[in-house]
Simulated scan of single mutants.
Amino acid sequence: MANSIKLTTGSSFPSIEATLAEGSRVNLSKAHSGADWQMLVVYRGKHCPLCIRYLNILEEHQAALKEIGVSVTAVSADSKAQLAESMEKLNISYPIAYGLNEQQMKQLGLYISAPRSAQETDHNFSEPGLFVINDEGTLQAIDISNAPLLRPELSVVVRGLTFVRNQDDYPIRGTVAY
């Protein structure tokens, strides 16, 4: 079994770049569209129908997230061509990137899986992850999973972030020890 790092809340989010669907490079930790916090959603790739569904549900929460100053970017290890195929099934307005490599996956502490067959995909891919980075570049919240069926319910995430953003002194949780 391979060892992996574990990102901790309260620490700086690593500087990781990927390529957006239209071809420009983006720092995945940086908020955009007038927001000061960033939510990064890592998904498995076009081969995962649960991921496509999750990304489409995330679109339904864009107005609420924008209202509290949280931007969203999604990323996977897919190629440009695979992302283009995914876009046919996605109805999203937030940026989506491709090309996350294994070194970056490990840097994020994500679980990595091998494809079951060439029909599934042609590369190793990360399992789901959700990272919330605050206006100081610090990890406010982390959720990683080893399977696509274990993801936080987005309505709960949005309600929780709304609560946190409306507090003057809400602390970053989970910083004592692990």
Rank of each mutant, 00 (worst) to 15 (best):
36 D>P: 07
60 E>L: 14
66 K>H: 13
62 Q>T: 14
33 S>W: 05
83 L>D: 10
36 D>R: 05
75 V>K: 09
65 L>V: 09
43 Y>P: 00
66 K>W: 09
35 A>E: 12
63 A>F: 02
71 S>D: 06
43 Y>A: 02
77 A>Y: 04
33 S>E: 15
44 R>Y: 05
46 K>T: 06
34 G>E: 11
35 A>S: 15
49 P>I: 06
64 A>P: 01
49 P>C: 08
52 I>C: 07
70 V>T: 01
59 E>G: 02
72 V>A: 06
58 L>V: 01
33 S>L: 06
74 A>E: 05
42 V>S: 03
41 V>L: 06
62 Q>Y: 00
75 V>I: 01
80 K>T: 02
54 Y>T: 03
49 P>R: 02
75 V>Y: 01
72 V>W: 08
39 M>T: 09
51 C>A: 13
36 D>E: 13
41 V>H: 10
73 T>L: 11
82 Q>N: 14
69 G>D: 12
44 R>K: 01
67 E>S: 15
46 K>V: 13
80 K>N: 04
70 V>E: 09
44 R>C: 02
48 C>Q: 11
59 E>W: 00
72 V>S: 08
83 L>R: 05
71 S>R: 11
67 E>A: 15
47 H>S: 13
84 A>Q: 12
52 I>R: 00
33 S>D: 15
85 E>F: 04
43 Y>Q: 00
40 L>H: 01
41 V>Y: 10
69 G>I: 10
75 V>S: 03
42 V>D: 01
73 T>Y: 04
53 R>N: 13
49 P>D: 07
43 Y>I: 00
34 G>C: 07
57 I>T: 14
60 E>S: 14
39 M>C: 08
82 Q>Y: 07
79 S>L: 09
66 K>L: 06
83 L>A: 10
37 W>A: 08
57 I>G: 09
56 N>W: 00
78 D>W: 11
55 L>T: 08
47 H>D: 08
76 S>N: 05
69 G>L: 05
54 Y>L: 03
44 R>V: 09
35 A>T: 08
64 A>M: 08
64 A>T: 00
61 H>D: 13
34 G>W: 05
83 L>W: 10
78 D>Y: 09
56 N>T: 05
40 L>D: 04
57 I>R: 13
53 R>K: 10
55 L>M: 08
64 A>K: 15
58 L>I: 05
66 K>N: 14
57 I>F: 04
74 A>K: 05
67 E>C: 00
59 E>F: 06
67 E>W: 11
50 L>R: 02
83 L>I: 11
74 A>I: 04
44 R>D: 02
54 Y>V: 06
84 A>K: 07
62 Q>D: 02
52 I>T: 14
